[in-house]
Simulated scan of single mutants.
Amino acid sequence: MQPHKIVSQGEWMAAHKVHLAKEKEFTRMRDRLRAERLALPWVRVDKTYEFDTPEGRKTLAELFDGRSQLAMYHFMLGPDWKQGCVGCSFGADHFDGANLHLQHHDVTFLAVSRAPLEKIEAYKKRMGWKFPWVSSFSSDFNYDFNVSFHKEDIKAGRAIYNYVPLDYEMDELHGTTAFYKDEKGDIFRTFSRYARGDEDIMGTYMILDIMPKGRNESGTMDWVKRHDEYESAERVQAAS
Results as ranks from 00 to 15, higher is better:
113 S>C: 10
231 E>D: 07
63 L>H: 01
102 L>E: 02
109 F>R: 00
57 R>E: 15
238 A>C: 09
65 D>M: 01
161 Y>I: 09
227 H>S: 05
230 Y>N: 00
147 V>S: 05
132 P>C: 06
69 Q>L: 09
57 R>F: 06
107 V>D: 03
106 D>M: 09
219 G>L: 15
165 P>I: 11
142 N>C: 06
27 T>F: 13
136 S>D: 13
205 Y>E: 06
49 Y>W: 04
48 T>P: 08
154 I>S: 01
106 D>I: 10
207 I>V: 14
213 K>I: 03
92 A>W: 02
17 K>Q: 10
195 A>S: 12
210 I>N: 14
103 Q>F: 04
115 A>K: 02
46 D>P: 03
99 N>D: 08
101 H>A: 10
31 D>Y: 08
63 L>E: 00
194 Y>H: 12
191 F>Y: 15
235 R>D: 11
232 S>I: 12
206 M>W: 12
20 L>T: 06
153 D>W: 06
43 V>Y: 09
92 A>F: 01
19 H>Y: 11
50 E>M: 14
66 G>Q: 02
32 R>N: 03
29 M>L: 13
153 D>M: 03
27 T>Q: 13
109 F>A: 01
227 H>N: 02
235 R>N: 08
2 Q>Y: 12
77 L>R: 05
137 F>C: 12
68 S>L: 06
235 R>W: 13
235 R>K: 14
225 K>L: 08
235 R>A: 11
186 D>F: 05
211 M>C: 13
135 S>Y: 04
237 Q>M: 13
230 Y>M: 07
164 V>L: 02
207 I>C: 02
196 R>Y: 13
74 H>G: 09
77 L>C: 11
19 H>Q: 12
31 D>I: 05
228 D>I: 05
238 A>E: 08
170 M>E: 15
25 E>C: 03
100 L>R: 04
7 V>H: 04
101 H>M: 07
228 D>H: 03
19 H>E: 14
160 I>M: 13
100 L>N: 07
173 L>V: 15
73 Y>V: 11
215 R>P: 10
57 R>I: 09
87 G>K: 13
128 G>R: 07
50 E>S: 12
91 G>R: 04
89 S>V: 10
51 F>I: 06
171 D>K: 11
211 M>E: 15
82 K>R: 07
239 A>T: 04
95 F>S: 01
187 I>L: 07
146 N>H: 11
150 H>R: 11
59 T>W: 03
191 F>M: 09
84 G>I: 00
221 M>D: 11
110 L>D: 08
5 K>I: 14
107 V>S: 01
103 Q>P: 01
104 H>I: 03
65 D>S: 07
117 L>E: 10
214 G>L: 06
28 R>P: 00
234 E>I: 08
23 E>L: 04
92 A>I: 01
217 E>A: 13
125 K>Q: 13
31 D>Q: 04
125 K>L: 06
101 H>S: 10
92 A>P: 03
225 K>V: 00
150 H>F: 14
108 T>F: 03
211 M>V: 08
2 Q>D: 08
196 R>A: 14
114 R>H: 10
26 F>T: 09
127 M>L: 05
70 L>M: 08
17 K>W: 05
149 F>W: 06
20 L>K: 05
121 E>T: 11
26 F>E: 09
238 A>K: 15
131 F>E: 00
75 F>Q: 02
189 R>A: 14
33 L>W: 08
73 Y>I: 11
142 N>P: 03
144 D>L: 00
176 T>E: 11
234 E>Q: 11
166 L>A: 10
48 T>Y: 06
229 E>S: 08
11 E>D: 12
46 D>I: 06
